[in-house]
Design a protein around this nucleic acid. Structure first.
Length: 449
RNA sequence: GGUCCGGUGGCAGAGUGGUGAUGCAGCGGACUGCAAAUCCGCGAAUGUGGGUUCGAUUCCCGCCCGGACCUCCA
């Protein structure tokens, strides 16, 4: 029985993971705001937490994974005001894009995918609790959270409220009692999405949504809360303040897991730098599985640099794994995922070390060990890779009938030892992005370059 | 300015107070008509200056460099 260890942002240390209820592990991860195509940075937490969920499911009998959709937000409104497209169309279409992209990355859907707009009653209920408890106040149609009312505010992200005020780079709204107070509810004009509330027509602030949705679907106390490290402050700090103040005595999430940021060619992605890469764009240059594997080749708490060469390398490594599986295409996956792999993965999701063990299995499989091939496949399934048939991996999208004529012509050239012609045909095949590998007796294998 | 993280071979990327994983690339060899794939083998690294220690890449301090957060952000 392996012991899973996780780096807990709350304590800044690696801790043994002990669920509140070993019979039912509960996980919440912050999902996307649906206003545009998912970018590579969005993909990292999805893949990282997908592996964590697969690991938890291998270890515990029941795991509930909740990942929200934020479908009411300034950016969505801005898109509407800019293009005139209906809000619901924007959010529905963008959500579908997100689902398509994440499926291409081999990420399992969460058990519950709550939308913020479907949880307005819960949001209002929490805000009312906060007001009643002296943690929220109304001002000019807004409801704000009073950070001074929570002695623990700032502890999670390691900041004092003094620092927050001193470091504030944003002009403080005049209706705030303290500079660090943040919005729970704000007024919304008629042309923008809004809901009736005790404070007039308005819409929820961003942070309160996650407090409401995690409460609704996981309760006031649950095991793991995940997200990108850029959410530690203010988003997660605020979630903790809201949830623990609304439900005195509760602890909200026990373990906080944050993935590090992703760079493109050494730089943070941003539209102004022109290096903003969407998942869809990358899927044009490499299979989703290669992108997934690339995301797992770096430990989740380290900055990851995406480049053309790292994605190409990820694909080459998978090629070798699939060759090893191809050699034993008849084997069924082992029921048991090898311990050496699980131990590495359980150690704060050390995917690079776990992948190193995959290479050992591949070595053995290529040397003829069928059991190693089964282990490779079983371990791969925890990482969410190596799930397709090797033939599909190598030849997906290749028009076999068109190529067959070329291959036959090349083989006959080889038989009459006209190697110049044989090489010419090989170049022609390769010009289509296909590599041909000769086997014995004129057999051959085609694979994508 | 404040808070925090990191600097490992050509590149990517783990771990560790006591011979520095793994992969990609490169080089030599086997195999091949030639390749590809596979196999065998090879070279190659802990930013810098101190400290603690029998011993530091690992712990502590300074410095240099890079990055993140403090504002919407995965």
């Amino acid at each position: 029985m392996i012991q899973i260890k996780l780096h807990n942002t709350r304590t800044r240390r690696r801790e043994a993971f002990t669920p509140i209820d070993p019979g039912h592990v509960k996980v919440y991860v912050c999902g996307p705001t649906v206003y545009d195509r998912a970018h590579l940075g969005n993909a990292r937490p999805v893949v990282v937490f997908d592996v964590l969920i697969r690991l938890l499911r291998a270890r515990y009998p029941r795991v509930t994974y909740v990942r929200n959709i934020t479908d009411v937000d300034d950016k969505i409104n801005a898109r509407f005001l800019e293009t005139g497209e209906e809000i619901s169309e924007i959010t529905t279409r963008t959500t579908q894009w997100f689902h398509d992209d994440m499926e291409a990355l081999g990420a399992l859907p969460p058990d519950v995918e709550p939308r913020a707009t479907a949880h307005i009653p819960e949001i209002i209920a929490i805000i009312q609790r906060l007001i009643q408890g002296g943690h929220g106040y109304e001002a000019q149609g807004h409801v704000l959270f009073a950070v001074d009312s929570d002695p623990d505010y700032g502890k999670f992200s390691g900041r004092s409220t003094d620092e927050l005020i001193a470091g504030a780079r944003v002009e403080v709204a005049p209706y705030k009692r303290a500079a660090g107070d943040f919005v729970l509810w704000k007024p919304s004009p008629d042309e923008l999405p809004g809901w009736d509330s005790p404070w007039g027509r308005g819409r929820p602030g961003w942070h309160i949504e996650c407090s409401a949705m995690s409460w609704k679907h996981l309760g006031t106390d649950f095991d793991i809360h995940g997200g990108g490290s850029d959410l530690i402050f203010p988003h997660h700090e605020n979630e903790i303040a809201q949830s623990t103040c609304a439900f005195p005595g509760s602890h909200f999430a026990r373990y906080w897991v944050h993935n590090a940021m992703l760079l493109v060619n050494g730089e943070k992605m941003s539209k102004s730098r022109g290096n903003f890469l969407t998942v869809e764009e990358v899927l044009h240059q490499a299979p989703g599985e290669a992108l997934r594997f690339l995301l797992l080749k770096t430990h989740y708490r380290s900055t990851l640099d995406f480049t053309d060469s790292t994605i190409a390398e990820a694909k080459r490594e998978l090629d070798r794994f699939y060759r090893a599986l191809e050699l034993h295409s008849a084997v069924t996956p082992a029921d048991e995922v090898p311990d050496v792999f699980l131990v590495a993965l359980a150690d704060d999701l050390n995917t690079p070390a776990a992948i190193a063990s995959l290479h050992r299995f591949a070595d053995a499989a290529l040397a003829g060990d069928a059991k190693a091939a089964a282990s490779l496949k079983a371990a791969g399934s925890i990482l969410g890779i190596l799930r397709q048939a090797p033939s599909a991996w190598f030849s997906d999208g290749i028009d076999q009938t068109t190529l067959h004529k070329l291959v036959v012509a090349r083989n006959s050239a080889r038989e009459r030892k006209d190697y110049a012609e044989a090489d010419r045909i090989r170049s022609e095949i390769e010009s289509r992005g296909i590599v041909i590998e000769d086997g014995p007796n004129n057999s051959y294998t085609l694979r994508k370059r």
